[in-house]
């Protein structure tokens, strides 16, 4: 019977359950969520793909200037933020977006494009 008082107190209070899809809490600053990639900043060094413990990052077109983009396999990702930590230019970052559920397996792969730096383009032509 030791709980009787607490039970009555709780019965009068609002339930602590959050009705999730309708009510949401703001994620705390610094939550490790979905990736963003800033193509302009990337120098194509490929460090992120090398340190990734889950092999979740794939460089499209190889390392260096010929790299055309990046695939991030969200299904494999551990959200450890090591890629962000090693990136010398801050091109890949984790946002606080935590809603990652998708209906198709293809949607589990984030495909980012990297435009080659525009200054170099005229030289090639």
């Amino acid at each position: 019977m030791a709980m009787a008082k607490e039970l009555l107190k709780n019965a009068r209070e609002k339930p602590c359950t959050l009705l999730y899809p309708f009510e949401k809490t703001a994620p705390p600053e610094g939550l490790r969520g979905k990736h963003v990639f800033v193509g302009e900043k990337c120098i194509g060094c490929g460090l992120c793909a090398r340190v990734c413990p889950a092999f979740a990052i794939e460089l499209l077109g190889g390392r260096g200037p010929k790299m055309s983009g990046m695939k991030v396999y969200l299904g494999r990702c551990l959200f450890c933020q090591q890629c962000e930590e090693v990136c010398p230019t801050g091109a890949i970052k984790l946002t606080t977006d935590y809603e990652l559920a998708v209906l198709k397996q293809e949607d589990m792969v984030l495909v980012f494009e990297r435009k080659p730096p525009e200054a170099k383009q005229p030289k090639k032509e």
Binding site: P28, R32, C80
Partner: peptide, 20 residues
Amino acid sequence: EEISGNRVNYAMPTIGGVRR
């Protein structure tokens, strides 16, 4: 979660110190 960025796998200690 607020300190480390995740509820369960904090990923705080790293070789040479802590990350955040």
